[in-house]
Write a protein that binds this DNA or RNA. Structure first.
Length: 944
RNA sequence: GCUCAAGUGGCGGAAUUGGUAGACGCGCUGGAUUCAAAAUCCAGUUUCUUCGGAAGUGUGGGUUCGAUUCCCACCUUGAGUACCA
């Protein structure tokens, strides 16, 4: 009988689906294990071979854990809101829901034929109203919460109102907007309801605020900072400009410290943690306030400049101050003489886009305001400048400039001829600043002379606090996250506006479903696409959506026109899988108490500062609300590397329609043109006729070939993408070699975390391994497995494989496992092993990797239940180390043999080793030698 | 610039409490089978070699009986970040 993989795979995929083999129960005597993948966005292009890499790894692990006796939750779903479906809708008028539905069908078909053990009964889709009901609900929960710094957790807004009623806001320590006015209980009571609502909005964890946002005119929407790469939009590469808009924001900054601390408690990759740390950007230092020396313009008011510094110890080296051009004091303190120059400078910088400003870091610009501030200790006047190297958005938008201790201040001072006093002992600052704080000894600084950074900092902060001119302060780079998008295809906010103030729709009336619109573009008046909806008003009496014409602003009000960003739905899906069909609660208490959190999460590192940070934030919030038992949602995370495409480039002479083979290029100016990879063979030769037919503009092209008539292309690894013509489709691979081959090969390609190019040629190796495996069980006469007693060699191979397999999979070294199987099959073949006692447990080892062939052979051996229910074979060391049993050698003792070596040591080797061991011990006068290293045939070394 | 990761045959890659470097696969070479091809099987495949050996894990040092592994400096590549005071 032959190995007919297509038939076998279709058969078992159907059986698994029919029997619901992988359906997980929310209760069990077994320990639980939750394996999660980052759910896909179902794009129109379908899957390419790079997409399933992480899914294959997690599937192997999930199947392995089932064999190990765990109740495994391994769900899958779709992140189905998103821009491409909307863009397609704008172009074609097709409703995004229809496009999305089609794409999901393609995805499901492709995923199914790879043989994943997903529990599809728990599928979620972020665009499904039954799902986004709960996304909206979490939004409303955030709206009804504030962050209490004293208890360091989110609390109910009702508690805050109670405090305001009892004692005003004087003692409240909250994460809130920074323009809070103080009020007493009496004042609070006297405020109008509107004023009270406005104040509360400044405290809520999600709030409306006029913010400077990243506006992308080409997309008609705003983007969060993590959606912008090098000053252009991540999707599409459109220019980004700053614009002030009223937007919903998430007060993630309240959680900055906990998001940082939490990293210590989770087993995530170090580079990814590092990225999150940098993104949160904690810096410890002090805030210092400098009094502005009154001038004729400002003598009526006294101004203070607040600065943040991480180097309070260098305060005596401050020879000037710098404000960001956008700083509010700029116009107030500028003197008459300098006004013209300052205005011109502010005007010029505001015109420069963010991108220009970033690209042009080297050029030093700035202008003197004419004003002076008073140094808090020396009382000397120091000039106040403005310069665009100071960012309005970080710290206070102002700095005390210490040219001798900071490179940027140094360059600025040098450029404008400002004083550079040296406050470091024994350091030459004539050429550059001395920024090494760990090796600095302070000098010329009054009472901190001779101190190091640590001591001086402490002392300065103490003195500043005494004087009331500063305090120790910690700053975070992490900004609150803008949560509004001017798009159609996203979750609607459960919000309507009464007198311009946001009101939340009660959970009872959710989901608030997306309205139908005629056009998916923004309206002519510049409103978001939902502005096109005609039935989009809220009747607060009947609690339902009604026609816009009924708006009277008494009982019927306009609804929010923005929708939520892509990360809203993906910040809660991992918990929803635990109880996905619950319409009364986001999940039941039993479900969350049973599954707790994700044990293993596999996905790409590109989500480091997006999804993975926001999801941690929501989880911490949910934890504060007592909804989840852990404040981190995923215990362990692995980043799978990307599988790259191997692009092919044909070189064309610049300005001509003549192509020239790679090896023949000398000094022609050439232009590389992407050629479809299917037109190029393994030796990098181009199919010229196919190439001509492929693109009409090349039909008439000339080709300069090698002497043997071949035309060679240049190869390069790039991200797989349609536009680079380097996409390899899994459907073709599966048809030709089978899903089991694809699964094995993707794992065999290299370490999971690594980026690696796809190369179809190598798949024949794993495919012939499967054929050899099949032949161990079947020959031309049918099943050849016998009831024979296993030989010693058989047992040795089996147990060696079990041992190696477990070591590999515990380290997530999926690639070496495949090699382990290959070695085992080669050994069994050489041993002519047919013993059922060996071949049956061996199948269980293979089954996570190649589940279809394993199921088929398992059935052939007479089992009526799925192999996924079989227990993992028990490893028995005695088959491996028997050869050393009769000798006084312990494995973890002073004499060391590795397991592998012990297998192949002869009796003579071991006797020689024991002798050498004893002899050395004698020489050392009874002390145990540290190590005796033995390899077959010789003693390598003895270490005393 | 800063932070992090990685450099091993023709290729993908194995080997880490320091102990046989190159497992396993691809490719290549030779052979068997075949009218032939595909498929399959067997043998070989780091380099040099006077066939005894010698050298060898980016480069140069160091520690060690012993270094792909540890330390220092440098080079290269990739990723992240970018005036964060």
């Amino acid at each position: 009988m032959k190995y007919n993989f297509n038939e076998i795979e279709a058969k078992w995929q159907k059986i698994w689906a029919d029997r619901q083999t992988f359906k997980a129960k929310n209760n069990s005597d077994k320990p639980k294990y939750y394996v999660l993948d980052m759910f896909p966005y179902p794009s129109g292009a379908g899957l390419h071979v790079g997409h399933p890499l992480g899914y294959i790894a997690s599937d192997i692990y999930a199947r392995y854990k089932r064999h190990k006796g765990f109740n495994v939750l391994h769900p899958q779903g779709y992140d189905s809101f998103g821009l491409p479906a909307e863009q397609y809708a704008i172009q074609t008028g097709q409703h995004p829901a229809l496009t999305t539905e089609d794409n999901i069908k393609t995805y499901r078909r492709q995923l199914d034929q790879i043989g994943f053990s997903f529990d599809w009964s728990r599928e979620v889709r972020t665009s499904d109203p039954k799902y986004y009901k709960w996304t909206q609900w979490i939004f409303s929960l955030l709206f009804e919460s504030w962050y209490n710094e004293d208890t360091d957790r989110a609390e109910d807004i009702k508690d805050l109102i109670a405090i305001f009623q009892a004692e005003g806001n004087g003692k409240v320590d909250a994460a809130c907007d920074d323009d809070i006015e103080h009020f007493t209980a009496e004042e609070w009571a006297a405020f109008s309801s509107e004023k009270q609502q406005k104040i509360l909005l400044k405290y809520r964890l999600t709030y409306l605020a006029e913010t400077e946002v990243n506006w992308v005119p080409a997309l008609g929407t705003v983007l969060a900072n993590d959606e912008i790469v090098n000053g252009v939009s991540e999707r599409g590469g459109h220019p980004v400009v700053k614009k002030k808009m009223t937007q919903w924001s998430m007060r993630i900054s309240a959680y900055a410290e906990r998001l940082l601390q939490g990293l210590e408690t989770i087993d995530w990759p170090d580079p990814l943690k590092e990225m999150q740390r940098n993104w949160i950007g904690k810096s410890v230092g002090a805030s210092v306030s400098f009094n502005v020396i009154p001038t004729e313009q400002s003598d009526e008011e006294s101004y203070k400049i607040e600065v943040f510094t991480t180097r309070p110890d260098t305060i005596f080296g401050a020879s000037y101050m710098t404000l960001a051009p956008e700083h509010e004091l700029v116009e107030k303190i500028t003197t008459a003489e300098q006004k013209e120059a300052v205005d011109a400078y502010v005007e010029a910088t505001s015109k420069r886009s963010e991108r220009d400003r970033m690209a042009d870091v080297k050029t030093i610009t700035g202008v003197f305001t004419g004003a002076y501030a008073e140094h808090p200790f020396t009382k000397n006047p120091i000039p106040v400048w403005i310069g665009d190297y100071v960012l309005a958005g970080y710290g206070t938008g102002a700095v005390m400039s210490v040219p001798c201790g900071d490179d940027r201040d140094y360059a600025f001072a040098k450029h404008f001829g400002i004083d550079i006093p040296n406050i470091f002992e024994g350091v030459d600052i004539s050429e550059e600043a001395f920024a090494d704080k760990d090796n600095a000894i302070i000098a010329n600084s009054d009472f901190i002379d001779g101190m190091n950074y640590k001591k001086a900092t402490k002392r300065i902060i103490f003195e500043l606090e005494q004087m009331g001119q500063g305090e120790g302060k910690t700053n975070y780079r992490l900004r609150d996250a803008v949560f509004s998008r001017q798009r159609y295809w996203g979750e609607p906010f459960p919000v309507y506006y009464k007198n311009g103030l946001p009101q939340i729709i009660d959970l009872k009336y959710l989901p608030l479903q997306l309205p139908e619109v005629e056009k998916y573009l923004p309206t002519e008046t510049g409103e978001p696409p939902l502005g096109n909806a005609t039935v989009w008003a809220w009747d607060s009496k009947s609690n339902e959506v009604v026609d816009n014409e009924k708006i009277d602003n008494k009982t019927v009000f306009p609804l929010e026109l923005n929708t939520m960003p892509g990360w809203a739905g993906s910040s809660q899906y991992f918990n929803r899988y635990m109880d996905p069909h619950n319409d009364d609660e986001i999940f039941s208490k039993e479900a969350i108490d049973y599954w707790e959190q994700v044990d293993l999460y596999i996905g790409g590192s590109e989500h480091a500062t997006g999804h993975l940070l926001y999801a941690r934030f929501w989880q911490k919030f949910m934890f504060d609300k007592g909804l989840v038992p852990h404040d981190e949602f995923a215990k362990k995370l692995i980043n799978q590397g990307m599988i790259l495409g191997t692009s092919a480039f044909a070189y064309r002479k610049e300005g001509e329609n003549t192509f020239i083979s790679k090896a023949l290029i000398e000094n022609e100016t050439i232009q590389p043109i992407h050629a479809d990879v299917s037109l190029v063979n393994a030796s990098d030769e181009l199919d010229i006729e196919g190439f001509k037919k492929w693109r009409p503009e090349f039909a008439e092209a000339e080709f300069i070939c090698e002497a043997d008539g071949s035309f060679k292309v240049h190869r390069e690894a790039e991200k797989m993408s349609k536009s680079k013509y380097n996409v390899v489709n899994p459907d073709d691979i599966i048809e030709r070699y089978g899903a089991d081959s694809l699964r094995l090969y993707e794992m065999f390609l290299g370490p999971l975390e690594q980026y690696k190019p796809w190369n179809t040629a190598g798949i024949t190796g794993v495919h012939s391994f499967l054929k050899k495996l099949w032949k161990l069980y079947y020959d031309d006469n049918g099943l050849k497995v016998s009831e024979d007693e296993p030989t010693k060699d058989n047992l040795k191979t089996l147990h060696k494989t079990i041992k190696k397999f477990e070591e590999d999979i515990d380290d997530f070294s999926f690639n070496t496992s495949v090699s382990t199987f290959m070695i085992a099959v080669n050994e069994f073949t050489a041993q002519k092993c047919s013993s059922k006692a060996i071949l049956e447990p061996f199948l269980i080892l293979i089954s996570p990797y190649a589940p279809h062939i394993a199921e088929e052979l398992w059935e052939s051996l007479g089992h009526s239940t799925s192999i996924s229910e079989a227990d993992f074979p028990v490893f028995d060391e005695s088959y491996l180390v028997e050869s050393t049993k009769n000798y006084p050698i312990s494995f973890n003792g002073k004499m060391r043999f590795t397991m592998e070596l012990a297998l192949d040591l002869s009796k003579e080797d071991i006797e020689a080793a024991v002798l050498a061991h004893e002899k050395t011990k004698e020489q050392l006068q009874g002390r145990e030698p540290k190590k005796v290293i033995v390899v077959p045939g010789k003693i390598v070394n003895i270490v005393g």
